[in-house]
């Protein structure tokens, strides 16, 4: 009987997708007509802007997507809209795994995610000055070498061959690499290396990251984070240069 009970708890417990109990938050009933006449209700609606709609993003990514003091939450502002949209889709579908993001986006439509991506792509808040690096000059040099020349012997391309000569990315799908903090860059490179972050095939970034060592990742992240952001940090227009290999995130 007990075993049956446990199994039945299990069966009933498959609640995640199975059929989820409702969580209705926001059921209000105390508003009287007198307190909120129709005209007041109309003027009481939230502003009809994307800024108001993406409030939910701001505690982690900043009001204009400039980032916050948390080093693992990236700046969104000014990244190519296609790149941001791909990430929003990947979080929505669970391909990119970060439960707080997966949860927020799960039941939003693709066109709405596109609007959100477009909104943050258009923001231009100032970049913070690069923080002083806490790694040795040797490591920075190793980072510089990998970023600017790659390592042909290990089939590692220079970052700029895809992310642009100025490392500011290219429309629509390739992000810039400057103005990000070393912890974030190294966490992402690590995730690509281990295959916990993936993108549509051919997954060029995973191929490249798989060839990096842990020391390479530290060096590249430290060097990138030490670079000042150019005055024009906008991503290059689509097709400005030819990618060295096929990439699912930047279809021809």
């Amino acid at each position: 009987m007990v075993a049956i009970g446990v199994v039945s708890v299990l069966c009933a417990a498959l609640g995640r997708r199975v059929r989820m109990r409702s969580a209705i938050v926001g059921l209000a009933w105390g508003l009287s007509i007198q307190a909120f006449p129709v005209s007041a209700q109309t003027s009481g609606q939230p502003p009809d802007t994307m800024a108001a709609r993406v409030e939910a993003c701001t505690p982690c990514h900043g009001k204009e997507g400039q980032g916050t003091s948390d080093v693992y939450f990236p700046r969104l502002a000014g990244k190519p809209a296609g790149y941001l949209y791909n990430q929003l889709l990947a979080f929505k579908n669970g391909r990119r795994k970060y439960p707080p993001m997966n949860y927020l986006l799960e039941y939003l439509s693709d066109p709405y995610l596109q609007d959100m991506a477009g909104y943050f792509a258009e923001q231009r808040p100032p970049f913070p000055a690069p923080a002083a690096s806490d790694v040795s000059p040797q490591i920075l040099q190793q980072g510089q070498a990998l970023v600017s020349r790659g390592d042909p012997a290990r089939q590692i391309p220079a970052c700029g061959s895809c992310h642009g000569p100025g490392l500011t990315g290219m429309e629509p799908g390739i992000p810039g690499l400057l103005g990000l903090r070393p912890n974030y860059v190294s966490a992402q490179l690590g995730a690509w290396r281990y295959g916990t972050r993936t993108a549509k095939g051919p997954d060029c970034m995973q191929q490249v990251a798989a060839r990096l060592t842990e020391a390479d990742v530290t060096a590249v992240a430290a060097y990138l984070a030490s670079r000042p952001v150019p005055i024009n940090a906008a991503p290059a227009p689509k097709g400005s240069y030819v990618l060295p290999f096929a990439c699912g995130s930047e279809p021809d």
Partner: peptide, 24 residues
């Protein structure tokens, strides 16, 4: 803690979201 978005529907395609405050 987690914030949340209501579902995007034909009748409310662009819902407003509640920020997560777990980190703050």
């Amino acid at each position: 803690l987690n914030g949340g978005y209501p579902p995007g529907t034909a009748g409310n395609p662009k819902p407003y979201g509640m920020p997560p405050f777990a980190g703050q």
